[in-house]
Design a protein around this nucleic acid. Structure first.
Length: 277
DNA sequence: ATGGTTGCGTAGCAA
């Protein structure tokens, strides 16, 4: 192609190149690093946020990720949790936050950064174990503190994406068997109300901005062949602020990596935007 | 059915 000829492809439109943001709970980055590399090559997201990296910062595979053409910031701990934000080399990463002023928590579940003028908040929401348990109360308390911080950040950042493993299925249509999950963990009313409080701050569940196939999920239990039977839940979400929801052109789950050898139990979720580059 | 599977770390917890 000569230098003067315009680049014409489905990637280019009158709105300019799409800007692609994705989230993936990898359930151990050490084990899943080959999948992350394979998926980055396939999807070419501008930003990919990870949850459950399950590694201390000292052992984080930063060089390997840089060799994939991505910058990375991360917040990890031993054995559990751990979050990371990857973005293409061309962007600046600014204003990184991993601790909320009002939440003293050793668990590494929160990572915020501003990239390409967009505030990105990567969340690994507490699972909660069982409704009514101590961990459940911690989940609700954690969500309350995070929601308060989001409200404050929203005043400052109009281009704002909150994404990650929310460990909450927003509605019964996001659940393979709503009857068996009725008021169970990930589906209970207090959890759904807590999610709604975030949405009420002016965010949209990007996936629901578009027509979607029924029974689309993002997580399938390793046990009992959950993926093959499509017994899943949609608990991995991309929430777009009003301004970004207007620019959102697509949002979907990519179930392919869930079918790869030795997969994470989660699939990547993606949202695409116009006019952001 | 308090089952089943995976990861970390090497027993039992967390998901």
């Amino acid at each position: 192609m000569s230098e003067s000829s315009p680049r014409i492809s489905k990637e280019t439109s009158i709105y300019g190149d799409k800007f692609k943001i994705a989230s993936w709970n990898v359930n151990s980055l050490k084990v899943r690093l080959p999948h992350v590399e394979q998926w980055l090559k396939k999807a070419e997201p501008d930003i990919l946020v990870l949850q459950e990296t399950k590694t201390i910062d000292e052992n984080f595979p930063a060089e390997e990720i840089q060799n994939m053409g991505y910058q990375v910031v991360f917040s990890g701990q031993k054995t559990y949790n751990g979050v990371a934000i990857l973005c293409k080399d061309e962007y600046l990463i600014e204003d990184v936050v991993m601790d909320l002023p009002d939440l003293d928590d050793p668990q590494r579940r929160i990572l915020a950064a501003t990239i390409n003028g967009i505030r990105i908040l990567d969340l690994y929401v507490v699972n909660g174990s069982e409704v009514g348990s101590e961990k459940f109360e911690y989940k609700l308390h954690w969500l309350e503190k995070v929601t308060n911080w989001i409200e404050e950040q929203s005043k400052q950042y109009k281009k704002f994406v909150i994404l990650g493993d929310f460990n909450i299925a927003p509605k019964d249509r996001d659940v393979h068997n709503p009857k068996s999950w009725h008021e169970k963990i990930l589906c209970s009313t207090p959890e759904r109300n807590a999610l709604q409080k975030i949405l009420d701050l002016g965010f949209a569940d990007s996936f629901r901005l578009f027509e979607q196939e029924d029974e689309t999920y993002s997580w399938w239990d390793y046990r009992s062949g959950g993926f093959d039977k499509n017994m899943g839940l949609r608990i991995d979400l991309v929430l777009s602020s009003k301004l970004l929801a207007e620019q959102c052109t697509a949002s979907y789950v990519d179930p392919e990596p869930r079918g790869w050898e030795r997969p994470s139990d989660h699939a990547p979720v993606v949202s695409e935007y116009r006019n952001l580059k």
